[in-house]
Amino acid sequence: MSYQVPKFRHPDLPVNELGYTRADYEGAISTLCAGCGHDSISGSIVRACHELSLEPHKIAKLSGIGCSSKAPTYFLGKSHGFNSVHGRMPSVVTGAAMANRELMYLGVSGDGDTASIGMGQFTHAIRRNLNMVYIVMNNGCYGLTKGQDSATADEGSASKKGDPNPFGAIDLPGLALQLGATFVARSFSGDKDQLVPLIKAAMTHRGFALIDVVSPCVTFNNNAASTKSYEFVREHAAATGTVDFVPMREEITTSYEPGHSQEVTLHDGSVLHLHKLSDDLDPFDRSSAMLALERYRSAGQILTGLIYMNKDSHDLHEVLETSRRPLNTLVEEDLCPGNKVLQNINASLR
């Protein structure tokens, strides 16, 4: 058994604007089961962060409990990390974000961690439009505790040792739309070409960005009767369109067929190109997104890609007018502006 990945890397790996290769964004060797979808999502996160030229020390990765929540150990080894208690990641992110808005907050959770024990936390983070990326590694089961059905397991789906699930599934993108999420996407761990640009867009979006990533549990829920298996997802996934993320400093070189493509300029000047495959979804229209989700669900298909994005998102910092500077950089003069200011405040209250 190998407990270490060899030190050597491909000698011609491309470097990003910071001079880093993909390898600089890797983490420890994974201890998840061989073939777990979560590892592929980790791979996509590494690629996205490298391609975005993010400084590793300006990223904080936070998680709850579960195989999915263990995953942050296996990427971004030079970033900040916090492994919280089960379902409590959103409140820890809220606190951290309020204290320091300069970091990019990446929450990693599972379907159990989010849709069961962490449901209350999840909904409020959305409602407040907390500026974070929230990735659910969704395998329809509690992988870490040996594969019990989770709240996202589809009705009738059965895990390797289980009976068909008698309950309906919670659809996280649908729920997030309902709660006013400003960026909602779904993808599949086995489709990096789709997932990487979505992660990049989510990381650049200002506000709460949910990516629900179907991520097969090879050990407990990758059997023929499961609707979260590699095979089932491949056969039933339907993409809204393809997304190209063009960072601010790069020239747009791809040309798109008119009528089928839309461009969105993000707050930092990056451009998102949506190349639509069908006309039945307008991802900038919330009701169109909700209808499309329902339409695909009732047709037995899994809608993937960018489902909804609010171009005028105002995140929690804007709403609450929080400190622009990290709290730990504020000194006595900032926090205690002196008698004169106090007199003024008192006067205004008289």
Binding site: V5, R9, D39, P216, N222, Y230, R234
Partner: peptide
């Protein structure tokens, strides 16, 4: 099963 695990782990 095209799970990509080998792609993700390969150091080189």
């Amino acid at each position: 099963i095209e799970c990509d695990a080998c792609v993700d782990i390969c150091p080189t």
